[in-house]
Design a protein around this nucleic acid. Structure first.
Length: 318
DNA sequence: TACCAGGAGAGCG
DNA sequence: CGCTCTCATGGT
């Protein structure tokens, strides 16, 4: 990577009360920040005054994408731009953010591995710049346990209540409203079921609580799963209550980076049936088999394109 | 009102 | 294996 433009200041916070403490600019190619942060992988990013605000680990951060003026004449398919990040506290090492955003990943190399068929061409064309981010495993697992048969907006609301209720306050810019961390598993494990239900998660409450207890108690070691073969990691996740094939695959893909994990939800199911099996009644199991052989080594990435395409761009209603 | 949402799990034939 | 039902909540 080229040496990025970094600024860390104890400087003139004088006139602007909302001034962030540290900022950094990441050069990127083909990175649609809005689509990426708003495509149902994560549930805490909020667009406010032109910035995407969120919490990664213990840090408040806000992000903004800007087209690189030096190359503004280039074709859209190789768009150069920058992601500007600002934090509320000084930052020495920005690896946590570079890793989360996966800014060093070459998207073109991945898109090249996709099958050269009409559905993928449509999805890629419609969602150019869509990325996968690399999330914290526990936050990802907990969020997706809360996701079942909920719309994305509702998942966001439940997660927000959970953080407000059980998370710790993080440092934010002056005059900014309070922001909270995603609660640790131990904190959720210690919560009562009725406290959890107060966050409007309904029947998912006992599942979240039991999963948190097993993780906080060491029955499941989230850190160890990344070293396992994908099949074994999936089995370990699926032993947790409320975690079936779909949610396990979401965690494998979004948190651990198993690129061949292929979550099939109602949208992906609809897209696959409509685009690849227009007049056949295909079972879920058959679709998994198809996905494992058809979409290549980055099937999970292809899945995200199909999901976003189906949900936002395509009209797949029968 | 009826139906659906980035599902899982139990019960059934 | 495949099908059906239930779970809690809020929005069309």
């Amino acid at each position: 990577m080229t040496e990025p433009f970094t600024k860390s200041s104890f400087s003139s916070a004088g006139t602007c009360a909302e001034a962030a403490t540290a900022s950094r600019t990441f050069p990127v190619h083909d990175y649609d920040l809005a689509a990426t942060l708003n495509s149902g992988q994560t549930f805490r990013w909020q667009l406010r005054e032109g910035w995407w605000e969120g919490v990664i680990g213990l840090r408040w951060v806000r992000l903004r994408a800007e087209t690189d003026l030096r190359t503004s004449g280039k074709a859209a398919e190789n768009e150069r731009s920058v992601i500007i990040a600002e934090t509320a506290e000084p930052v020495n090492d920005w690896r946590w953010l570079a890793d989360y955003l996966q800014v060093e990943l070459n998207l073109a190399d991945i898109l090249r591995t996709f099958p050269d068929d009409q559905p993928m061409r449509l999805a890629v064309a419609a969602c150019r710049g869509l990325r996968l981010v690399r999330q914290d495993p526990w936050e990802c697992l907990a969020s997706f346990i809360l996701s079942s048969t909920k719309r994305i907006v509702q998942i966001q609301q439940i997660v927000a209540r959970l953080c407000e209720q059980f998370g710790e306050q993080v440092i934010v810019p002056q005059n900014h409203q309070p922001v909270y961390t995603f609660p640790l598993s131990g904190r959720i494990a210690a919560a009562g079921e009725s406290e959890l239900r107060a966050c409007k998660m309904g029947f998912r409450a006992p599942n979240l609580r039991t999963a948190a207890q097993r993780i906080a108690g060491g029955t499941v070691d989230m850190g160890r799963l990344s070293a396992l073969p994908v099949g074994e990691a999936r089995e370990a996740l699926m032993r947790l209550p409320g975690v079936g094939r779909k949610i396990a695959d979401c965690v494998l893909l979004f948190a651990y980076g198993f690129q061949d994990a292929f979550p099939v939800d109602v949208w992906v199911m609809k897209a696959l049936r409509r685009l690849y099996f227009p007049r056949r009644q295909v079972t879920l199991k058959r679709l998994h088999k198809f996905a494992a052989t058809h979409f290549g080594p980055y099937a999970g990435y292809a899945q995200q394109y199909l999901f976003h395409y189906a949900r936002v761009h395509a009209k797949l209603n029968d």
